[in-house]
Write a protein that binds this DNA or RNA. Structure first.
Lengths: 135, 135
DNA sequence: GATACCAGTATCCCAAAGGATACCGGTATC
DNA sequence: GATACCGGTATCCTTTGGGATACTGGTATC
């Protein structure tokens, strides 16, 4: 009675809900930098310049902007030490840790995707060679 | 000998690798729309307008652009049927399915994040009421 | 005859993302 | 005295993402 034949695993309803939920997630995690920054801080607090070196290729302007947004969303905290010159420490909060599983899946997928791209481009190269020197 | 004290679980090396891998992933999944489109197609093939309705709030221009990129990256296939008027069917490939775990984690996180936002804003409302009518 | 559907394309526009470069004031280092 | 570090800000610029609107051609529907 509770079982119907041919009922798709992803009903239209479930699918719509997934889309909404993923949109919600992407809304706060938008752009190239949010997740890389969160990952960089996952192994311990870092200062501004350290963070910039860890994330690589991010400019001061963008890093500064992203940090503000991450702080607003409770992913990190910012603490200023009255040293001379001032030291500023960025630290990930407990809430960042709720992203661990997301990050892990994304990391694993990224690794295998790169492997796939590499294999594909190598095959193309081989095919091109074959085309140039047939038989 | 192979064990060192105070060695962080996320060594600097591991952390850098994670960042690179996640950047690779984000590079192909960029923007608001790629994942929602992939999810929409996960329950079966859809035509252009059906897809547009499923994803909600996406314009024809953007949808068209995103579909081309997704096809280039082997996430979907495009098939034209010579009906009158033409019917075009978009279908997710097996490679899309490798994103299932990523999508699931992102969906779950999105759900709990929204819940959290809701709770927080409700608390703020209550606090405001308290401030207005103390005691 | 007017309207709507289909799968887009074309055009115009705005906002946001992102990048490049310069700069600050104070310290330490060469 | 020149240079570099620190944690950014300021300014200028380009690119991309994204939105709004209009249009097509052939069919079907009102």
């Amino acid at each position: 009675m509770s079982l119907k034949k041919e009922e798709p695993v992803h009903s239209k309803q479930v699918c719509t809900e997934s889309i909404v939920a993923v949109k919600d997630a992407l809304y706060v995690l938008n752009g190239k930098w949010k997740l890389p920054i969160i990952i960089a801080l996952s192994s311990g607090p870092l200062r501004f310049k350290e963070l910039q070196r860890a994330v690589e290729n991010i400019t001061t302007k963008i890093l500064s902007k992203e940090l503000k947004e991450l702080e607003l969303n409770d992913f990190i905290t910012r603490k200023v030490y009255p040293t001379v010159p001032v030291t500023v420490e960025y630290k990930s909060t407990g809430y960042s840790k709720t992203l661990d599983k997301v990050v892990n899946e994304l990391r694993e997928w990224g690794v295998q995707h790169k492997k796939r791209i590499f294999t594909k481009s190598r095959q193309n190269t081989l095919n091109l060679q074959k085309a140039k020197n047939p038989k």
